[in-house]
Structures are given as structure tokens and as C-alpha cells.
């Protein structure tokens, strides 16, 4: 079975055919070659595959591509603004919030959603808000710092 879907990915309209069992992350990585989004587990826990679906952070390994029909998808490749880095990307760099870089895309996408959603971002709120993303390298210390830094810079920006 093959289904025709249309969705917007990083601002570009995509019309394609997928089989129902294709997950959104497979569509992104394998069909659209957007390999910045990664797969780190098969039980929907690690969050490496996090993208924004209609403005909300979701685990793209746990969404069928057909479910994204008619939606807007934003991936790590689509958040930089006018050739510059998104404040969250810049903050991860400034604060050494990444090491191996594998969880980073998902972590940044979750962090952007968190900052957009929550007004009062103390350390505990940030840590709780990132509980759906596992990082094995950083011990989260510098990720928390990065989110704090970006939150300051994203104020008043609204959703990306």
C-alpha cells in the first residue's frame, strides 16, 4: 500500500508517496536525506529524533509519515534564521552543550520547544523539560547552561 502525502518540511512543500509503515523519521532521513535527525532507540525514549510537528516537539520515530500529511515539519536543518544560527544552536556552541553531537539535534529541538512553551525557566524546570532526551556525553550540565543562555536571547521572539 502506498499513500500520497503533502507536507511542508523546513518551509518547503513536499509531495511524496509513502508506505503506511514509514515513520516520519524515515521519511526525513531516507526520502528527504535530512540526516541531521537521528535515531537512538526503538522504544520512543531517547529523543534523538525530536523534530517539530506543527510547532510542537515530537519524537519522529513515533509518528507515522502518513500522520504528518498536511502538517508543517521543522528539523534541525530548518531552524537557522537567514544564514545565522538559531539562538539555541549558538548557545549550545557557546556553552559546550554537545560532545559527540548525536543527541544534539533532538536536544536542540526539544529545548526550543521548552523555551517557547515555558515562561519561568529555572534549572529544575529545564531539567524536567528535557527528560525526554537522553545525552550520554555531557552529563547535561552544559546543556542546562545553554538552554538558560538561549532562553534569555529568545525572549519575545515567539515560536521560531
Amino acid at each position: 500500500m502506498s499513500i500520497d502525502i503533502t507536507l511542508t518540511v523546513n518551509g518547503r512543500e513536499i509531495n511524496t508517496e509513502v508506505s503506511p509503515e514509514t515513520t516520519l523519521v524515515q521519511l526525513l532521513r531516507e526520502h528527504l536525506l535530512l540526516t541531521g535527525t537521528h535515531v537512538g532507540c526503538d522504544t520512543s525514549q531517547c529523543g534523538a529524533c525530536t523534530v517539530h510537528l506543527d510547532g510542537r516537539a515530537v519524537k519522529s520515530c513515533t509518528v507515522l509519515a502518513v500522520q504528518a500529511d498536511g502538517s508543517e515539519v521543522t528539523t534541525i536543518e530548518g531552524i537557522a534564521v537567514a544564514g545565522g544560527l538559531h539562538p539555541m544552536q549558538a548557545a549550545f556552541h557557546q556553552c559546550h552543550g554537545l560532545q559527540c553531537g548525536f543527541c544534539t539535534a533532538g536536544m536542540i529541538m526539544s529545548a526550543i520547544d521548552l523555551v517557547t512553551r515555558e515562561d519561568d525557566l529555572d534549572e529544575a524546570t529545564i531539567r524536567k523539560g528535557l527528560a525526554g532526551n537522553i545525552c550520554r556525553c555531557t552529563g547535561y550540565h552544559n546543556i542546562v547552561k545553554a538552554v538558560q543562555m538561549a532562553a534569555g536571547q529568545m525572549e519575545g521572539r515567539g515560536h521560531e
Binding site: 520512543s44 529523543g47 515530537v58 519524537k59 521548552l114 512553551r117 527528560a131
Partner: peptide
């Protein structure tokens, strides 16, 4: 769950 799960 977590934020992403709550969003779906």
C-alpha cells in the same frame, strides 16, 4: 511521560 510524548 515526557514533553514529546505529551505533545502526541
Amino acid at each position: 511521560g515526557d514533553a514529546q510524548v505529551r505533545n502526541r
